[in-house]
Amino acid sequence: MARRRAGNLRNAAEVASNLMLAPMVMWMRIPLLASETNAGAGGIETMRAVTEKGMAMAQGMAAAQVSVAGAAMRFWPELLSGRTPSMLNGVAAEQAMHAALKPVGRRVKANYRRLSARSKGT
């Protein structure tokens, strides 16, 4: 039980630290978006900024649904073994939330790495 809790805390900390990079990513992306609007047509960064949000949302929804389905499959085994089912004690909701936010956090972290390497190169 303690290992599972430590793993959940580690996952939550990882997702939170990745999401804390979002303001920095926005700050690094604004000059790129502004330069693309001055060029006239929508550029690569604009398309990337728009499409990645939809993809991350779809991946997060799918991950949350898989997590909830897994918790539903474990309902009766947990109940029959004398434990409180994760669907009833909030653990399933917490796991689904972490699963839903993980793709977004990975995307933000990847953008931060990409944009910070680009700013160091120029």
Rank of each mutant, 00 (worst) to 15 (best):
M1F: 08
A2E: 10
R4F: 11
R5C: 03
A6L: 10
G7R: 11
G7M: 11
L9E: 15
N11K: 12
V15Q: 08
N18G: 05
M20D: 02
M20T: 03
L21F: 00
A22K: 03
P23A: 03
M24V: 07
M26W: 03
W27R: 09
M28F: 01
S35M: 06
T37S: 10
T37R: 07
A39T: 04
I44W: 06
I44Y: 03
E45M: 08
A49P: 00
A49V: 03
A49D: 05
V50P: 00
E52H: 01
K53D: 13
G54Q: 03
M55G: 07
M57V: 08
M57E: 13
Q65A: 14
Q65C: 08
S67H: 13
A69I: 14
G70H: 09
G70F: 05
A72Q: 15
R74Y: 11
R74I: 15
F75T: 04
L80A: 11
S86Y: 03
M87N: 05
L88T: 12
G90T: 08
G90E: 12
E94G: 13
M97N: 14
H98C: 14
A100I: 03
A100F: 11
L101S: 08
K102N: 06
K102G: 01
P103D: 03
P103M: 01
V104S: 07
R107I: 00
K109P: 02
A110R: 03
Y112C: 05
R113G: 05
R113P: 02
S116G: 09
S116C: 06
R118P: 15
R118L: 15
G121C: 13
